[in-house]
Simulated scan of single mutants.
Amino acid sequence: MRARLKKHLAEAFEAIVIASLEDMIADFDRRIHALESQIAEVIRQAQHTARDYSLMVSVPGVSKVSALSLLAHLPELGQRSPKSIAALAGLAPFDNKSGKLSRRSQIQGGRSRVRRA
Rank of each mutant, 00 (worst) to 15 (best):
I43W: 14
A12T: 04
R111E: 01
E22C: 00
I39Q: 13
R103I: 06
V17A: 12
H33S: 13
L74C: 07
R115S: 11
V59R: 05
G109C: 10
E36W: 12
Q38K: 14
Q38W: 03
S58F: 00
L101Y: 04
A12C: 05
A40H: 11
L71G: 05
I107D: 11
S81N: 13
S66Q: 08
A89W: 01
L9E: 02
L21W: 03
I18N: 05
R113H: 01
S58M: 00
L77C: 06
F94R: 15
L5W: 03
P93L: 09
Q47A: 05
D95S: 10
L35R: 08
E76H: 07
P60Y: 00
G90Y: 08
S98Y: 06
A10K: 06
A40K: 11
I16Y: 04
H48M: 09
L71R: 08
I85W: 04
S37P: 02
I18M: 04
S69D: 01
I39P: 06
A89Q: 03
Q47N: 06
L9I: 01
D29I: 10
R80D: 04
S58G: 01
H48S: 14
Q47F: 08
H73G: 08
P93Q: 10
A19F: 13
I39G: 07
S69G: 11
Q108M: 15
M56A: 13
A40I: 10
K64P: 11
G110D: 06
K97N: 02
G90A: 10
L77S: 02
S84R: 15
A89D: 02
R104V: 09
R80H: 06
N96E: 12
S105D: 03
R103C: 05
R103M: 08
E41Y: 05
Q45S: 12
R103W: 04
P82F: 00
G109E: 10
V57W: 11
D27I: 02
F28A: 03
S20H: 10
R31L: 13
A67W: 04
L101K: 07
N96Y: 08
A50E: 11
A87G: 09
K64S: 14
A72R: 14
K100N: 09
S58N: 03
E22D: 02
H8F: 07
I85C: 07
V57R: 15
K6L: 01
S112E: 02
I16N: 13
G90T: 08
L21A: 03
S58A: 03
E76W: 06
R31G: 05
P82D: 00
E41I: 04
A86M: 14
L9W: 00
S81C: 08
K100I: 06
A67Y: 04
D27V: 06
A15F: 10
Q106C: 15
S112P: 00
P75H: 04
F94Q: 09
G99H: 03
I16E: 14
A46P: 02
H8T: 03
S112V: 01
